[in-house]
Computed example of a mutant assay.
Amino acid sequence: MPAKSKAQQKAAGAALSAKRGETKKSDLQGAARDMYDSMSEQQLKDFAESDRKGKPEHVDD
């Protein structure tokens, strides 16, 4: 499932970095922390690798 916005993609990238041990979990904030706790590494990778072209900065749910 690809990210729906650039902000969601950035949060997934930050969570993926922490999941891989490249950054500290304590450095995560907001959506990135929630994604870290609730998603697998593969799911985060799918979100973070999606194409950014044409995506809005934020999406209202």
Rank of each mutant, 00 (worst) to 15 (best):
L16W: 05
H58W: 13
V59W: 06
A11E: 00
H58R: 12
Q43R: 13
L28Q: 04
A18Q: 01
Q29A: 13
E49L: 15
K53Y: 06
Q42A: 12
P2Q: 03
D51G: 08
D61K: 12
A12E: 03
R52W: 07
A31M: 08
Q9E: 08
S17F: 07
M39Q: 08
E57L: 10
S40Q: 11
G13I: 01
E49Y: 10
L28M: 04
K45M: 11
K45A: 05
Q9N: 07
Q42T: 13
K25V: 15
A48G: 10
K45W: 04
E22D: 14
D60L: 15
G21Q: 07
Q42M: 13
A48F: 05
K6D: 07
K19G: 09
K45N: 02
K55N: 03
A7S: 12
R52T: 13
T23C: 08
P56S: 00
K45V: 02
K25C: 03
K4N: 05
K24N: 13
M1C: 08
R20C: 03
A15G: 02
A32H: 04
E22K: 15
D51Q: 15
A3W: 06
R20L: 12
A12I: 03
A15T: 00
K25S: 12
A15W: 02
E49V: 09
K4W: 02
E22A: 12
Q42W: 11
G13F: 04
T23H: 02
A12Q: 00
S17I: 09
A32L: 00
A11Q: 05
A7P: 09
H58I: 00
R20Q: 12
A11W: 03
V59Q: 06
L28W: 07
A3Q: 06
G13A: 14
D61A: 10
A48E: 01
A14D: 13
Y36K: 04
A14N: 14
P56E: 07
Q43K: 11
A31Q: 07
K24S: 15
Q43Y: 00
A3E: 03
A3T: 02
F47A: 00
A11V: 08
Q9L: 09
P56Y: 04
D51I: 10
Q8L: 02
D60K: 12
S26H: 09
G21F: 07
K25Q: 10
G21P: 05
A3C: 14
K55T: 00
S50L: 03
S40V: 10
D51S: 13
L28K: 04
S17C: 10
Y36L: 03
P2N: 04
K25L: 12
D34S: 12
S17A: 15
G30H: 06
E57P: 07
Q42D: 12
E57W: 07
F47H: 09
D60V: 10
A31C: 00
E57F: 10
E41N: 05
A32G: 08
V59G: 05
A14T: 06
L44I: 06
R33V: 09
K24H: 15
D60H: 14
S5T: 05
D46T: 11
P56G: 05
S50K: 09
G30P: 05
S40T: 15
